[in-house]
Design a binder for these strands. Structure first.
Lengths: 188, 188
DNA sequence: CGAGGTGATGTCACTCAATGACATCACCGT
DNA sequence: ACGGTGATGTCATTGAGTGACATCACCTCG
């Protein structure tokens, strides 16, 4: 037995999620979270850069996953095709729809958390654009394809967590991509 | 003569911009800004919800402008066409390219400011989507068109402030929309 | 003209997020 | 045993943000 309980980071994440669900993000202090996890605030900030970040630890992992999938996409794929392949692989990580929904509702209820969510999405977009550059796509084209792809992802993800049925994320993504294609093909 | 110097809000904005440019956002305290404007921190927070907001006062005005332009777009316009019309009207507000560039560089240098910028863009996207709903566009379609349109706007705006030449924002926007059309038309 | 209301600002006290410096102490290998 | 290491705690401090209340020039109304 170690001197300390194991998995301090996971305990903090779990305690934070529970408290946020119970009393909301603002009403929960970092000291509350740390106490619930049997630690001190100082230790919280050793694991998370700030109070919000405790909810976004998985975002970096997701981003890496998608970037790898993009790199593995067929070399013959068009930019949007490659982006679609990459986003589709998110379904491999986001398996627990209920947990995603709970996290989404905490984030939706707080402006600061929505901001953080957005910058994570922007980071994802940049990473995907960078991946397209590796495929000799021109800069503006790559950024635009990545931005549009992430826009599709956001819409699809929200539809996926909110749906009454049990459609897979992949299917919702496919439908949303088709919708964008239709929209952009119209004269403008 | 009034008891106080006029335009407290404008003085705070100006002092903030100068200090941010000189020493950066983080290195500037709210007390610094207030002192430079001949006021106290407490008064700063009466005008701005938080320290970041002093840079984003114009965002609401821009949003309103675009929403009005969207409402004025021809009823026959397709969703993307209407969005393009609305975004084009931004050129009427964003006339001072140098000021925009200066503001952009302050924002780009700080993660918290980038977050705030993103949520303003998201708010713009929501407002535009809402405007499309008024035109009897289906929800998912409206959100997607708005998201894609704002993605185009972001790319175009950055190109506009960074360019060496003197191309108008309208022209850059038109080019970026054409680029999206080409990207989305490709098989995926 | 004087009394009282109004609105913008100041003052004070406080909470909480965040960080740096330094102490503690179980465990591990030598 | 012994010193190093790493995870944690303790303490002090800064700065953002807020609530309660005071101040005071100006305005209006009797």
């Amino acid at each position: 037995m170690g001197r300390w309980e194991p998995d301090a980071s996971a305990r903090l994440r779990q305690a934070a999620m529970e408290l946020f669900v119970q009393q909301g993000f603002e009403q929960t202090t970092v000291a509350d979270i740390a106490r619930a996890a049997g630690l001190t605030s100082r230790t919280f900030f050793r694991y998370f850069a700030d109070k919000r970040e405790v909810l976004f630890g998985g975002a970096t992992a997701l981003e890496n996953h998608l970037v790898e999938a993009l790199a593995d996409a067929p070399g013959t794929a068009s930019p949007m095709e490659a982006i679609a392949v990459a986003l589709d692989s998110a379904a491999e990580v986001l398996t627990d729809r209920h947990w995603s929904a709970q996290r989404q509702s905490v984030i939706a209820a707080n402006a600061e958390l929505r901001e953080r969510e957005l910058i994570k999405m922007a980071s994802l977009s940049e990473a995907l654009a960078h991946g397209l550059l590796q495929r000799d796509i021109a800069d503006a084209e790559a950024r635009l394809a990545a931005e549009a792809g992430v826009a599709v992802f956001r819409v699809a993800f929200e539809r996926w967590v909110a749906q009454a049925g049990n459609q897979g994320l992949s299917d919702v993504l496919r439908e949303s991509f088709a919708q964008l294609r239709a929209l952009a093909a119209e004269p403008n």
